[in-house]
């Protein structure tokens, strides 16, 4: 073997790290290890969750334009502005789907891990008060939010009338139905409960935990969740009171 001329003379190896060596499986091993680990999964849940909270803040700000004028002109201008983004809007929507998908995927993974880690139950179950209704029902409220988001997309994003002349009118006519308003209140209620644990929990997972500001972190998380919940719940409530009689 030694007498055979190598197709790659030794000098060829001294060209420094190229793309090929950067993509060698060994150098990427830490990524696989990180995202396959229990802590890596929680990081993904936390980062995607907080980015989705950022989206909710922007979404609520846009929706509040419904209250800006009776004609719905400002809301229409906002909707048109978004549609005018063209490919950028598509990219943003794909990003949101990606965030949501990752969040749900890793939620299912951790749910599976946690079920496997605690297969037998105690005959007497007694919390020491640390666990909350919100923290104990995260998979349930998460599933309700997932179903709600699908209904919500069918109502608005996938309805051609939303790109038409009167998007505010579509909101009003949709939410004016008591059944739809009830669905939105349940969805927003589940979201609020979910976020009341999620925001502060995500920050703790990302390492933001110190005795000096833990109470602040917990109150800010709860406060943001309640603000978002009240904001989003205001639309079906307002629809029932102000728009319900006139449009139904």
């Amino acid at each position: 073997m030694s007498s055979v001329t190598s197709p790659n003379p030794p000098g060829a190896l001294r060209k420094g790290p190229g793309i090929a060596s950067a993509l060698r499986p060994t150098s990427m091993r830490w990524i696989l290890r990180f995202f396959g680990s229990s802590i890596g999964k929680k990081y993904v849940m936390a980062v995607t969750g907080l980015l989705l909270v950022g989206f909710l803040v922007a979404h609520l700000a846009g929706n509040l334009l419904l209250y800006a004028d009776e004609s719905g002109g400002k809301f229409k201008a906002y909707a048109e502005g978004l549609h005018d983004l063209g490919p950028l809007l598509w990219a943003a929507e794909l990003g949101l789907i990606g965030l949501f998908g990752l969040h749900v995927f890793y939620a299912l993974q951790t749910l599976r891990d946690n079920r496997a880690a605690r297969q037998s139950r105690y005959a007497v179950s007694a919390s020491r008060g640390a666990k909350t209704l919100a923290s104990a029902t995260m998979p349930i409220t998460g599933a309700i939010v997932l179903l709600f988001v699908i209904v919500h997309l069918v109502h608005f994003r996938l309805d051609d009338a939303f790109k038409g002349d009167d998007p505010a009118g579509l909101v009003k006519s949709t939410l004016a139905s008591p059944l739809a308003a009830a669905i939105y209140l349940v969805g927003v209620g589940a979201l609020t409960l979910h976020l009341s644990h999620a925001i502060q929990s995500a920050l703790q997972t990302l390492g933001a935990s110190h005795p000096n500001f833990n109470p602040v972190r917990e109150k800010l998380g709860l406060g943001l969740a309640v603000l978002l919940g009240l904001g989003f719940a205001s639309f079906p409530v307002y629809a029932l009171i102000a728009w319900g009689g006139g449009n139904s």
Partner: peptide, 24 residues
């Protein structure tokens, strides 16, 4: 073992008062 969901029942049950900041 399972993954932490930050219930922090562990902290409330710890006989030595180990703080949740250690998880972070």
């Amino acid at each position: 073992f399972g993954d932490c969901s930050n219930h922090l029942e562990c902290v409330a049950s710890c006989p030595k008062g180990i703080a949740g900041t250690n998880i972070a």
